[in-house]
């Protein structure tokens, strides 16, 4: 038996919004410590990893591990039926072929229950090693979203170069070129830790997709190391995260 209750549906809506552009379907792995999900996009260029520890939930019960295969389009449709300030309870019986979502209005005067059919999805799990990133940058999530949007105007490829002087995003195409550089700020909005400078090239459209997670967090963490995937991490309060990994482009 699995049961998890969140005081507000809004975060769940935001989490699904952050995933649904990159994934159509995915499996939530629920255990007594919380919920995990990991999936690659269709082209196998990026990977998204979601973690929600049980402490994130108002109520959390999971007697035995259960995997919930979900169609994110269908889940989005159900979440549209709820108000952001509704409480939501997700329930599934052991070996169930459906999941139940119950919404309760803030004043408790309205309840609505929906059932969603579960999918049997082939799960591919990748082992993500602990990586020591040569460059770790924290910046406002809205700033990162703005940079990704502005870069996309110029080119498909974005070069991210990080050194002690700052982090620089560059794109050049037929129209011209764009360079945006951020330096560390004294107030701490932007922090830049650099062991060794790194410069890598990435497909901009994936970066833009990752910024769908912007409403979830004030700050985004970016990790760069030579010849490893880029890390873009959005914390979910103190109880979890969405991490996106993006494979770098290599010279033709």
């Amino acid at each position: 038996m699995f049961e998890a209750r969140l005081a507000s549906t809004l975060t769940l809506k935001r989490i699904v919004d952050a995933l649904r552009e990159i994934l159509n379907q995915s499996t939530l792995d629920c255990s007594d410590t919380g919920i995990q999900m990991q999936a690659m996009d269709n082209s196998h260029v990026s990977l998204v990893s979601l973690c929600l520890r049980k402490e994130y939930f108002e109520k959390y019960k999971c007697n035995r591990n259960i995997s919930l295969g979900l169609d994110l389009k269908s889940l989005t449709k159900v979440l549209k039926c709820a108000n952001g300030d509704d409480a939501v309870t997700i329930k599934a019986a052991d070996k169930a072929d459906k999941v139940e979502l119950s919404f309760e209005s803030a004043g408790k005067e309205r309840t609505a229950d929906y059932e969603l059919r579960l999918l049997n999805l082939d799960q591919e799990h990748l082992a993500i090693p602990e990586t020591e990133y040569n460059c770790v940058v924290h910046m406002p999530a809205t700033e990162f979203a703005r940079i990704c949007r502005d870069m996309a105007t110029f080119s498909e490829s974005v070069v991210i170069a990080c050194s002690k002087e700052g982090i620089k995003f560059s794109a050049s195409g037929e129209m011209g070129a764009a360079n945006i550089k951020l330096s560390e700020t004294t107030k701490g909005e932007v922090s830049i830790q650099v062991d060794e400078p790194v410069a890598l090239s990435f497909a901009g459209r994936y970066l833009s997709t990752f910024t769908r997670a912007t409403p979830l967090a004030e700050k985004v963490k970016i990790g760069l190391a030579p010849d490893v995937p880029l890390l873009v991490e959005y914390p979910i309060e103190d109880y979890g995260y969405i991490r996106y990994y993006l494979a770098p482009k290599v010279d033709d």
């Binding site: 591919e124 990748l126 490893v228 033709d252």
Partner: peptide, 12 residues
Amino acid sequence: MQRGIDSFFKRV
């Protein structure tokens, strides 16, 4: 050229 993410992480 774009590398696949699965060339960096091992399948388990």
